[in-house]
Computed example of a mutant assay.
Amino acid sequence: MSIDPSSIPSFGVPQPQPGPGQGGRPAGPPPIVVPDAKLVTQLLDQMQLKHATDEEGDLVAPWEGFRVYYMFRGEQKELFAVRAFYDRVYTLEQKPEILDLIDEWNRETLWPKVYTHTHEDGIVRLIGECQMIVGTGVNLDYFITTTANWTQASVGFEQWIVERLGLQQDIEDAEGTDGEGDAPSED
């Protein structure tokens, strides 16, 4: 099943919507499909996102500081999940502050729902997750729009947490170094 490029959200840039029967699609509701990795790959390609397949067969799109996984789970791959693994490390002492922040995020946004994962060595990391049941089929436009929105929201969370923790200057300083930990490079 091919994805109609006009159905992919533009995240702010209005796109003309074809009328009934236009745009290469017949009039009427979009088809119901059972999504699979091939469909998600087409969507990521059309969104122009760099991606790969990991050793478990899940699709992964990397960003600086986090990765977004697109995975199907269940005996018949009936559960589709978009899961973001954020690389920033927090200590156990920071966990109460982080929990307060992600509670705020989870109250104020629909997705991704974010939670902490504490490793055996005491390192705390954040994970964002969205899920939908797709085994009996889903409206193609709904699947495309939701997956694209979940991806954008995963990126948005990273920007939000950087802002809330006041880390923007630290990130800019790290990007401005010459790679050896010295002062920022001059332009």
Score class of each variant (00 low, 15 high):
Ile171Gln: 10
Asp100Val: 07
Phe72His: 05
Glu172Phe: 03
Glu108Gly: 14
Gln152Trp: 09
Ser6Lys: 13
Tyr142Ile: 13
Ile8Thr: 03
Gln48Pro: 01
Tyr69Met: 04
Gly12Met: 02
Ile133His: 12
Leu126Ile: 08
Leu59Ile: 10
Thr118His: 02
Thr116Phe: 05
Met71Val: 14
Gly179Leu: 09
Gly24Tyr: 03
Cys130Ala: 15
Glu104Pro: 00
Glu64Gln: 14
Phe85Lys: 05
Gly21Pro: 13
Phe143His: 07
Val155Ser: 05
Thr147Arg: 04
His119Thr: 08
Glu104Cys: 06
Val68Asn: 01
Ile98Arg: 10
Arg88Asp: 12
Pro184Glu: 03
Gln159Ser: 11
Tyr69Phe: 15
Ala37Lys: 05
Leu167Glu: 13
Leu79Gly: 01
Pro30Ala: 14
Pro62Asn: 04
Glu120Phe: 03
Gly128Pro: 09
Pro16Arg: 11
Thr41Lys: 14
Asp121Glu: 02
Asp121Lys: 06
Pro26Glu: 11
Asp170Trp: 00
Asp187Ser: 09
Tyr86Pro: 01
Pro31Asp: 15
Val155Thr: 06
His51Phe: 11
Glu186Ala: 12
Ala37Asp: 10
Glu158Lys: 07
Arg25Asp: 07
Phe66Glu: 07
Gly137Arg: 11
Lys95Cys: 06
Tyr70Cys: 09
Thr41Cys: 04
Gly137Phe: 07
Arg164Ser: 06
Asn139Gln: 12
Ala27Tyr: 02
Tyr142His: 12
Gly21Glu: 07
Ala52Arg: 13
Phe80Asp: 08
Arg67Ala: 12
Arg25Pro: 08
Met71Asn: 08
Ser6Gly: 10
Tyr142Arg: 11
Glu186Pro: 00
Val13Thr: 14
Gly65Met: 08
Tyr70Met: 11
Pro112Met: 05
Ala27Gln: 14
Val124Glu: 05
Pro112Ala: 08
Thr116Val: 15
Thr118Ile: 13
Gln159Gly: 03
Val162Thr: 15
Ala61Gln: 08
Val40Cys: 09
Ala183Asp: 14
Ala84Asp: 01
Phe11Pro: 00
Glu55Phe: 01
Ile133Thr: 14
Phe66Ala: 06
Val40Lys: 03
Asp36Trp: 09
Ala27Gly: 12
Leu79Tyr: 05
His51Ser: 04
Ser10His: 06
Gly122Pro: 04
Ile161Ser: 15
Ile32Asp: 09
Pro29Gly: 12
Glu129Ile: 10
Ala153His: 09
Ile102Arg: 01
Arg164Leu: 00
Asn106Ser: 10
Leu59Ala: 02
Tyr70Asn: 09
Asp103Gly: 11
Glu129His: 08
Pro35Ile: 05
Glu120Thr: 05
Glu163Leu: 06
Gln48Gly: 02
Tyr69Leu: 11
Leu79Asp: 06
